[in-house]
Design a protein around this nucleic acid. Structure first.
Length: 581
RNA sequence: CGGGACGUAGCUCAGCCCGGUAGAGCACUUGGUUUGGGACCAAGACGUCGCAGGUUCAAAUCCUGUCGUCCCGACCA
């Protein structure tokens, strides 16, 4: 490929609306251009990278037994109503109306479609297991698209769906995908690691996310340095808070005291009250699937809403408004409590975090503005409907596996594997006949990789002050041939064309920078775009019979003209081998 | 949806506070000189100052509304 015959609009300056380095480099290296918020055009080099990532995914999915299909992006709403997600996922659904005024959905994911297919086509245990996958555009009405391709309204995703006859079979399918994902990210040159994950609206009961460590990620990962435990903070557990919960008896009954104007944990910890956060019970009011619930957390802990949803099985949870709270409890936020004798509506369900078990000598709101209760004993004074682990793990707490202090870091989620069970197969009638003639719903799994997000994650992880540093496996071109003179019959240009042809013969994709630009411009551009290896052909070196090999981010090496092609091929093969996993 | 910032040339930005004929650098066009790390000189082209309304003799500048973008939060498969 000749540089002059493709389209690589590099930018010297950083675009104002790109905040994080990978987004800036996507634009500066001429890989993508924005149409509007959350929608991007892939330019030739960006598209080449995308295709290479897709190819790696295809190879590994095929190796793991995946069968490629392509499903419609435009979907009828009835299957979404059938699965129950027309309501629960309505926040991200793009809906469109046709000329007959019928409504459709632009697919944000494809469980409904693939399960409909399975319902029709997979009728016998003899056909199982099956694992279908596709690489396809997804549409999600993200509330706030951001960071370029990281969170977009339209993006490319690889999604796979497995169908098994048994739970054990489903676990095998799951682990095949888990292993395939490990290989895929390694081959893309990404350091990605699996963590235990919450399943969210998609449902199911077992799940891992593949995370790329990055400060700009949108996820917090809790991990133990031993490597024996890692989990998304939405799911993470520990051996409990660093400081124990008070359990000493302090009195025969709760005692009401005036706390005018005190509506925060901090204010109650300060003089003149001096009730440490650890001695307080935080009472939160949520509306879970349209019904109010009380959630109790120790004062120095914070509620983990993902856990609340997972543990209570609620599909939609939101904080109650101030008015709803006054209606329910007769007091405003800041004076709320769950002490049974103060509850205006004693039937409201009360869920408490495990850390509050057996707590005594606690202080909590009196459900009367400006008053709190002290000497509260949880077992004696409260009616807790259910105990759950609802708190968010904090740095330094003991790892459940090793007891070592846990750490937290930010990360980008590039892949997610779920064991779904029979949630969708039951609702959409994807059943099969087993050997004994009985009918069962297929046991499903689903597995996603954000292809466009993976592309950007590679940039986020592989860059320096000069630009991108593509791993050879996904680089738009592995070699950039750079003659410093480009007049057609000059020695640099002649040798450059010969080298391009020899590399092509060896199956190596190179780009020849035939632009009539000063050397500095070409060097800067090739480093910005991030080709793994640059070959300089300049009059000075050629006069000495040498060609220059400059790996991106490495040191220059001179090789005899005659050996150039062989040296380049050897370098590329060695680099590729390193990523093959 | 709440909070914040910003919309001026293709890009990065100044001008706005304090109203008075639209600016710089880069990019682009032409000519010349250069040619191993984002060259230099000269000439040139490029704008309904996001949009709509208002105040005013006069609005990029002040006021109101609106649209868009980015960030934080909420939300999020």
């Amino acid at each position: 490929m000749l540089w002059s015959q493709t389209f690589i609009p590099t930018l010297k300056e950083t675009p104002a609306d790109a905040e994080i380095v990978s987004h800036q480099l996507l634009l500066r290296a001429g890989l993508v251009r924005k149409l509007t918020g959350g929608l991007y055009t892939f330019l030739p080099l960006g598209l080449k990278v995308l295709r290479k990532i897709e190819q790696i995914i295809r190879e590994e999915m095929n190796r793991a037994g995946g069968i490629e299909v392509l499903m419609p992006a435009l979907q009828p709403i009835d299957i979404w109503q059938q699965s129950g997600r027309y309501e629960t996922a309505s926040g991200v659904l793009f809906k469109v109306r046709d000329s007959a005024r019928k409504d459709w959905v632009l697919g944000p994911t494809h469980e409904e479609v693939i399960t409909s297919l399975a319902a029709n086509e997979l009728n016998s245990y003899r056909q199982l297991p099956k694992n279908f996958y596709q690489i396809q555009t997804k549409f999600r009405d993200e509330i706030r698209p951001r960071f370029g391709l990281m969170r977009a309204k339209e993006f490319l995703m690889k999604d796979a769906y497995s169908f098994d006859a048994t739970d054990a079979g489903a676990m095998t399918s799951y682990h095949k995908m888990y292993d395939a994902y490990t290989r895929i990210f390694a081959r893309c040159g990404l350091q990605a690691f699996p963590v235990e994950a919450d399943t969210g609206v998609i449902g199911g009961n077992y799940s891992h996310e593949f995370m790329v460590p990055a400060e700009t990620g949108e996820n917090d990962v809790v991990y133990c340095e031993s490597g024996k435990y890692a989990a998304n903070i939405e799911k993470a557990v520990s051996r409990g808070p660093a400081e124990s919960t008070p359990s000493e008896s302090t009195g025969a009954a709760p005692e009401k005291f005036a706390t005018p104007g005190v509506v925060t944990i901090e204010a109650l910890s300060a003089a003149p009250y001096g009730v440490s956060a650890r001695h307080q019970i935080k009472t939160l009011v949520f509306i879970a699937d349209s019904k109010p619930i009380l959630v109790l957390i120790r004062g120095d802990d914070s509620l983990n809403e993902a856990k609340l949803m997972a543990k209570t099985g609620a599909v939609q949870v939101r904080q109650a408004t101030a008015d709803e709270i006054v209606d329910l409890l007769g007091a405003r936020p800041g004076s709320l409590g769950a002490v049974a004798s103060t509850l205006k509506t004693p039937t409201v369900p009360v869920y408490a975090d495990e850390a509050l078990r057996g707590a005594r000598g606690m202080t909590t709101g009196a459900n009367e503005d400006g008053f709190h209760l002290r000497q509260v004993e949880v077992d004696r004074d409260l009616k807790v409907g259910a105990w759950y682990d609802l708190r968010t793990v904090k740095v330094g707490e003991a790892c459940v596996e090793t007891g070592q202090p846990l750490k937290i870091r930010r990360a980008i989620e590039v892949g997610h594997v779920f064991k779904l069970g029979t949630k969708y197969s039951e609702k959409l009638n994807a059943t099969f006949l087993s050997e004994d003639g009985s009918r069962h719903p297929a046991v499903m799994g689903c597995y996603g990789i954000g292809v466009t997000r993976t592309l950007q994650a590679v940039i986020e992880q592989c860059n320096d002050k000069d630009g991108i540093r593509w791993p050879v496996s996904v680089a738009p071109f592995t070699v950039c041939i750079t003659p410093l003179t480009v007049t057609p019959e000059s020695q640099p240009m002649t040798l450059a064309r010969e080298l391009l042809a020899k590399l092509a013969e060896a199956g190596i994709e190179a780009i020849l920078d035939d632009r009539d630009e000063r050397p500095g411009v070409k060097f800067k551009d090739s480093e910005l775009v991030g080709f793994p290896l640059r070959v300089n052909l300049g009059e000075k070196s050629l006069a000495k019979g040498e060609i220059e090999l400059k790996p991106r981010g490495g040191t220059m090496r001179m090789v005899p003209i005659a050996d150039a092609a062989a040296e380049v091929i050897a370098w590329v093969r060695a680099e590729s081998a390193r990523l093959q996993g």
